[in-house]
């Protein structure tokens, strides 16, 4: 009898186990449904580098909206602030420190982010300029209208060097065997310094982020560019002397070529 009880309880336990495993399998499947791949995930900066392109593609559930964010790690940036001195002269009047802001930040979405995502979700995943503005700390403009003004100036400055960008409707989507394929081709600015960049895709439904997938893009200096950049930092004295000697040699060299260039006055 005792043995039978044990067998029944064992059977119940096994059923529970299987049910849990099946449930887990489904949930893993659900999470794995959003995929992402960057075609050009290792950008090499060589002598003739003038920027690149990165295409991001993958699959998502049908009917979901998508947001693709490419960003560098967050840090702080100190910039010079122009203002009016003596009431009418525009000049540098101090520094502004921007904290928790990435050097590169691009966001692309299938629809306007404010229309497809709640403000709480935007803030949670730092999606869109308004969310980044709330996430950033600006000194000495910590809040209110002043903070908004200077954040907008910050974005303008970053967009002028192509490090910040946002677009709506550039992600191409198509139905594919009951799934949704997406694709976007983005310009990779040559102004983006070497480093590791995070590419994230967010699937959005009912104003919520329902899934997220990530990949990375590595930007690295190679060849002469790497050698010179390394030398400038690590062998600065030698680098300085070489730069001076090269300039002197060039000056004398051209002087010799133009040997008959001079003449008495």
């Amino acid at each position: 009898m005792k043995n039978l009880k044990f067998q029944v309880s064992n059977f119940k336990f096994s059923i529970l186990h299987i049910a849990l495993i099946v449930l887990m399998m489904f949930s893993v499947n659900a999470f794995a449904e959003l995929t992402i791949k960057a075609n050009h995930d290792h950008i090499k900066i060589d002598f003739f580098y003038h920027g690149s392109t990165v295409s991001v593609k993958g699959e998502s559930d049908q009917g979901t909206d998508l947001i693709i964010k490419i960003t560098s790690t967050e840090g702080n940036q100190v910039l010079r602030k122009k203002g009016k001195a003596a009431g009418f002269l525009w000049m540098n009047v101090g520094n502004m420190e921007f904290e928790h802001v990435p050097n590169l930040y691009t966001v692309h979405s299938t629809k306007k982010i404010g229309d497809i995502l709640s403000p709480e979700e935007m803030d949670k995943y730092v999606l869109g300029y308004p969310a980044l503005s709330r996430h950033a700390e600006i000194t000495p403009a910590s809040a209110g209208e002043e903070k908004t003004t200077w954040f907008n100036e910050f974005v303008k400055f970053k967009e002028s060097s192509r490090l910040y960008a946002s677009s709506t409707g550039k992600i191409l989507t198509s139905a594919n065997n009951g799934r949704q394929s997406y694709y976007i081709l983005t310009d990779w600015p040559y102004q983006a310094p070497p480093g590791q960049y995070l590419v994230s895709v967010y699937a959005v439904k009912d104003k919520q982020v329902v899934e997220k997938a990530e990949t990375t893009v590595l930007v690295e200096q190679v060849g002469i560019v790497k050698t010179l950049a390394g030398m400038a930092k690590n062998n600065a004295a030698f680098y300085g002397v070489i730069s001076i000697l090269a300039a002197l040699a060039a000056g004398f060299g051209v002087g010799l070529i133009f040997r008959k260039g001079g003449g008495a006055h």
Partner: peptide, 8 residues
């Protein structure tokens, strides 16, 4: 100026 911020 068109930009009020510049690199330090």
């Amino acid at each position: 100026p068109s930009l009020l911020l510049s690199q330090g």
